[in-house]
Design a binder for these strands. Structure first.
Lengths: 141, 141
DNA sequence: CCTTTAAATCGGATTTGTTCTGATTTGTCA
DNA sequence: TGACAAATCAGAACAAATCCGATTTAAAGG
């Protein structure tokens, strides 16, 4: 997803444009990596030094609801990245547990794996592979 | 996994036997369901009304380390259930997001899905299907 | 432009889940 | 039984996230 698309989605849903929102999205768009709310806060302070963490959290959760950000949970805190499923088709990620960097996996287990018991009404699924990226492996020495 | 097996594992690793530990494991063994630390606390208070939450958390994390409990994260809090992978072979679950009840899925996407990029050193993976179980669907009306 | 209004933000207090700490109790083994 | 290490207690401390009332601001209409 591009920054412009994200802003378009906000507009379509009647949310107002603010520089802070754009900057948050821009920060997430810079990297194929999961960022924590704190990460985003730190980076946005360069441009908006007084921004309150309430704003960051509130906007993040708006973005997640609108499908602009994807969310996961690592080390007991929420991590976020610009949604990419929207771009092409639905897929999943390998995630570096050190730095949050991601790499796409083709396909989805839901298509491949046959039987989901019919006494459950399925609402979603999660498939994530965890590991360490090249860079973090070498840093760890 | 059975309660006795779990106690055996504790013993093998040099952990002491305590009634509180046994009761915690027993509580988890009662249901094929993910329980929160709070759930476990409430239930264990019947037998040990003064038990501190520190003990519960500490024991839970010991159990997870030893592979006695499986952990996941739902609604921003840790949930736990008696490990069953140990029994047969490795597999995954459908989880009811309302009550935590689980049902097994045969197989593992890691076997089925071919390519994990070789610039990641894989350390683990997670595959969970979410939904509502029959009971919770009907209660929701 | 100016006004109006609802949405967004601020700053800090609050809540919630979890971990830490130091003192005390309790298994276990010699 | 005694001694020691491990387990537990009680509550303080912590960190992530949410809530709240007051203030500011985007944007739509006159």
């Amino acid at each position: 997803m591009k920054v412009e698309e994200a802003l378009q989605i906000l507009k379509e849903h009647g949310y107002k444009y603010t520089g802070k929102r754009e900057e948050m999205i821009r920060i997430c768009a810079e990297e194929k990596r999961y960022l924590s709310a704190k990460d985003i806060m730190e980076r946005i302070k360069e441009l908006y030094p007084t921004l309150s963490f309430d704003t960051v959290y509130r906007n993040i959760s708006t973005f997640v609801q609108l499908g602009i950000l994807e969310e996961t949970e690592l080390d007991g805190e929420g991590k976020f990245r610009l949604a990419c499923s929207a771009d092409g088709h639905h897929h999943h990620h390998v995630i570096c547990t050190e730095c949050g960097k991601t790499s796409s996996l083709p396909g989805c287990p839901m298509n491949v794996m046959a039987s989901v018991p019919e006494d459950f009404q399925v609402t979603g699924h999660k498939f994530e592979v965890y590991g360490m990226c090249k860079e973090c492996v070498s840093h760890a020495n």
